[in-house]
Amino acid sequence: MDFIIEIFNLALELIISFDEVVFEIVWLSIKVSFTALILSCLVAVPLGTVLGLNRFFGRNFLILLFNTLMGLPPVVVGLSVYLILSRSGPLGWMNFLYTPYAMIIAQMILIIPIVTSLTCQKVEELFMEYRELFLSVRVKKSQQFWVYLLDARYALLTIFLAGFGRAISEVGAVIIVGGNIDHVTRMMTTAIAMHTSRGDLSLAIALGLILLFIALLVNLTVFILKVIAKRFGYD
């Protein structure tokens, strides 16, 4: 019991005292994961929508592929990105390895399949609902695309959350491509891994609690948005 109380005290202390080191780590985690999320969505949302709205040869294969990639092991992603970004790898000239950019790329590879698959699923659901409507009033395909996204906006929020959750909680990939370098690529998860290996278990769990707290804040924001939407009848 003392152990648990100690951990909670430590976590609270770190949050309340606004510990500079912890704050830096938290801020980097958020920056990297949000950037990865936004860039992923720029790719994955249109991709998922196209997959959901169109019927073409190879579509089922692509859907199956993205569904499978949702379960991609982060370590494998980390290693692949590492080999590509390594100075002796094909993109070594970019000098991305051991920078936040490398971590963003790795996280994008983890997020894109999730956002693509879930968007595709949601849009397909809406497509079934609205197909006749659009044919009955003749809205251009390019316009339909936007209307579907607009219509799915609250569902998309949940999808983004799933992507963000995968990104911010992931450690296997970012520790390989980021290197857990102090002040440069040390994130919440890599710091947790590091403190665990130092045997500093209470600090590791305290950081874990802070991570959980951030996840809670993000989820709460989306939850409130959805409640407001529901109140106005847009659910």
């Binding site: 080999l83 390594s86 100075r87 070594g92 051991y98």
Partner: peptide
């Protein structure tokens, strides 16, 4: 100095890849 801390074997392999 940016430190990447891994096991000796991996550090050597990473260095061989010029990282």
């Amino acid at each position: 100095v940016k430190v990447v801390a891994v096991g000796t074997g991996q550090a050597i392999e990473n260095s061989k890849r010029c990282d």
